[in-house]
């Protein structure tokens, strides 16, 4: 599901949970295991997908549906809060790692997958990458910290566009908006990330860490507000109804808008 290598100061974290690295309790536990063993002497973390389908399709909706369906109604709130608190803990820790973090994105980068990518310091997108917040279709907002993190990087107009329309944008548009640092050909993302890691390794560690700490802060108040709004919306009937439709759908193309 999650695997990593560590060599000469560089971690390469590979997500490989079919169909497209959906984030549920298993993925979360894997990310937590990775975070708990990070060598503070490392200088770069590369986050990538090992699946052809894309970077990450977002939250594991089938697992979420099972959890909510199996629990009494009055337990939905506490259950959602527990999951979202754990997710935020992992995302915040990834965000604040004292390494330079590089996300390599190809194909689908939707919802929670987009939010995971947004924890990275630098994003390298292959030309096939598409970014999307489809959450309104489920009657919720992005809940893994995506909007506050996106607000650090791009203007409010693009955020409203993505959030309120649910449309996806390609790598070139994402680069023009300042969200993506480099766009490369299909299959070239990891090579570009390794070249960046080699460069990062030349820098003085104290200066490198200080630079990141200086420019990249956690938007704590907004993250907290997002968490509360997410749980309030997710407790409502719209999410469960949307999840029901999703799991019962026989559409072979569930990731088409």
């Amino acid at each position: 599901m999650i695997d990593w290598t560590y060599s000469e100061g560089v971690y390469e974290l590979t997500l490989a949970a079919p169909p497209c690295n959906e984030i549920g309790t298993g993925m979360l536990a894997g990310l937590r295991r990775f975070l708990d063993q990070v060598d503070p002497a490392a200088h770069t973390l590369i986050v990538r997908s090992g699946l052809r389908q894309g970077f990450c399709a977002g939250a594991d909706l089938r697992e979420l549906h099972r959890g909510l369906s199996d629990a009494p109604r009055d337990q939905h709130g506490p259950q959602l809060r527990q999951f979202i608190d754990a997710i935020h803990g992992v995302m915040d820790d990834l965000d604040m790692l004292p390494l330079t973090t590089v996300g390599v994105v190809h194909g689908i980068c939707f919802g929670g997958g987009f939010e995971l990518a947004l924890t990275c310091d630098v994003l390298i997108a292959e030309k096939t990458a598409r970014f999307c917040f489809p959450e309104l279709r489920l009657g919720i907002i992005p809940g893994f910290g995506g909007i506050p993190r996106l607000r650090r990087d791009v203007g409010n107009g693009l955020i409203r566009d993505l959030l309120l329309s649910g449309r996806s944008i390609n790598a070139k548009r994402a680069q023009a908006a300042g969200l993506v640092s480099q766009v490369v050909a299909s299959g070239e993302g990891l090579t570009a990330a390794r070249a960046l890691a080699a460069q990062t390794g030349k820098f003085d560690p104290t200066a490198r860490k200080a630079a990141k700490a200086f420019i990249k802060k956690l938007p704590k108040d907004e993250l907290l507000a997002e968490r509360e709004l997410f749980v309030r919306l997710a407790e409502g009937p719209a999410l469960l109804a949307a999840l029901q439709r999703f799991v019962e759908s026989t559409d072979l193309r569930p990731y088409l808008p």
């Binding site: 389908q53 194909g107 096939t128 990731y255 088409l256």
Partner: peptide, 15 residues
């Protein structure tokens, strides 16, 4: 093609 491949095609078309 599946939905993942369709997404790739949309990016090709936009480019």
């Amino acid at each position: 093609i599946d939905s993942f491949q369709a997404v790739e095609l949309i990016s090709d078309v936009e480019d």
